[in-house]
Design a protein around this nucleic acid. Structure first.
Lengths: 293, 293
DNA sequence: TCAAAAACGTAGTATAGCTACATTTCGAAG
DNA sequence: CTTCGAAATGTAGCTATACTACGTTTTTGA
């Protein structure tokens, strides 16, 4: 994957991978990436103050076969808004830096998700949800947010839904389930130990349990009827934004759309009517889970 | 912006902007974009079955000064995936299509946000939050999710926080506020009419009210002490994923990071300790708003 | 201090991109 | 149907580009 080319350039500079002249090239590239990818070899060498072969040697050290490939990787990195420096946010950053890096990190992650997500697993989940008598969304902490979001969406397609974020309530909920009920558990690590007894209880009662997690080999994933892996770039630094919520929210969107699509168009018309009603009553579509709120 | 280049190619083909031979080029480009941007002029012309100048004329018609620029735009477009205009999801799409488009749309939006966000406004909000005695997050519907998310984060920096998502509770909450209290209202449209009385009441009591919205000219934005505009690409179609939550969640991250950074490092150490504790107790950092959940 | 190795630049070559111009194709008027 | 003109397309040739082989300089370590 070519996702983090600018970071590759930076680490190459910071580590001792580059020679003195090559480092001059890397500094120019980092400070003026737009120019660097548009200039010809001769002009780039002149701008940096080194010879043409040195620039080429620099490109090769970064894993590019030739200047063309270097330019393509630069263009990709710039398009995706990759951070000029680390994705981790250094103390003392300006507001503009913080904003750029939070967004860069989020975009990189979604881009990553796009390439890795298991759509077959998603389809199997959709099949389960469509046949469900009721859907129960469980999640603690930040995953509780995702559960609530899902709960706001799905009832509109005509399926009764519940969201629980309290471990005790979740266990109580689990004991009330039976066959044709479907549980969707959100847990990024897949190691939420308080969740496990509830998953076991739910399955013992005949309910299907889907786990959405970033770790397909985790205990919860193994305990589930069906697991969907949502890979996230690991970064445990304190300043790192919590990306997995966002990835999980996107997954909720995908599932909701797929379910809506499969259900008859009547349901869709219902939603449209409801949305318009909400807009008219509140003069604010923020109350609709399907508004752009 | 060069975000939508592939769509530009497609519309050029579908409209009658291209000659017969040039259309052959466009078809090759659309069917094999990776190849098209890596091949040399001669090889590309050969692969398409036209002469070199025809390929160049094709590039020019698409607004590229030369082949280099064409390649850079291709690389950018490929990196960012399909553009937003194409992201509306047609009924009958496959799961893979749905997943790709939800993510493409989210990425396009965050990319857009990245270019437009008002970091000065954010900084002013941070200044307010740092001086706050307590912080109150308000939001209805999908914005309620965002409010809850914020409420999970900020107490860790040592600031007492409350999230309210019920209009009546919000109004009650508003009447209890005084100077040095800060309210953060989330409303994508900025037209949540039920929110207005509460905003007025809060300000009458001397509290500061910040509104995070996509519409800087909206009633709520005008009624606020401080407004932060979070632009989102409009798309009211039923299948459109609700992007603004995601954008708003990113804004919450930015604010949280900026506040954490400004507070003394003691607070940061506290969070680290807390996070470790949670991991040890629950064997799952999903319970921590700062875990990668 | 000296020799080996790495770094770097010079100069030369093949090729890539680009342009001016010739040829062909197509459409409309006679 | 023929003829003329304009648009479309290809040919051929020029310039600058990317890349390489080799020679020079600098650095390194004994």
């Amino acid at each position: 994957m070519t996702t983090h080319f600018m970071i590759r350039v930076q680490t190459a500079r910071d580590a001792d991978e580059l020679s003195r002249q090559e480092r001059k090239v890397s500094e120019f590239v980092l400070s003026a990436p737009e120019e660097a990818m548009r200039l010809s070899l001769a002009r780039l060498a002149e701008a940096v103050g080194v010879s043409e072969p040195t620039v080429l040697r620099f490109c090769r050290k970064l894993g590019c076969a030739n200047l063309q490939e270097f330019r393509i990787k630069m263009a990709s990195a710039e398009a995706i808004g990759l951070p000029a420096t680390h994705a981790e946010i250094a103390p003392g950053s300006s507001m503009a830096d913080i904003a750029a890096r939070v967004l860069d990190f989020s975009v990189s992650n979604l881009d990553n998700l796009r390439r890795q997500i298991d759509t077959d697993a998603l389809q199997r989940i959709v099949d389960l949800l469509i046949g469900a008598r009721s859907i129960h969304f469980w999640g603690n902490g930040a995953s509780g947010i995702v559960a609530r979001d899902a709960q706001q969406k799905f009832p509109l397609f005509g399926i009764p839904c519940l969201a629980e974020t309290d471990s005790h309530q979740i266990l109580i909920n689990a004991s009330t389930l039976s066959a044709r009920d479907v549980v969707v558990v959100f847990s990024n690590t897949g190691r939420n130990s308080t969740m496990m007894p509830s998953v076991v209880a739910a399955r013992a009662n005949g309910a299907s349990v889907v786990v959405v997690t970033s770790n397909s080999g985790s205990p919860l994933a193994r305990a589930a009827s069906l697991a969907c892996c949502v890979p996230t770039l690991d970064n445990t630094d304190i300043y790192t934004p919590t990306i997995s919520r966002i990835a999980a929210l996107c997954v909720v969107d995908m599932l909701a759309i797929a379910v809506a699509q499969t259900r008859d168009s009547l349901a869709c018309r219902k939603i449209k009517t409801m949305k318009e009603t909400i807009v008219n009553v509140f003069r604010d579509d923020s109350s609709s889970p399907h508004g752009n709120e």
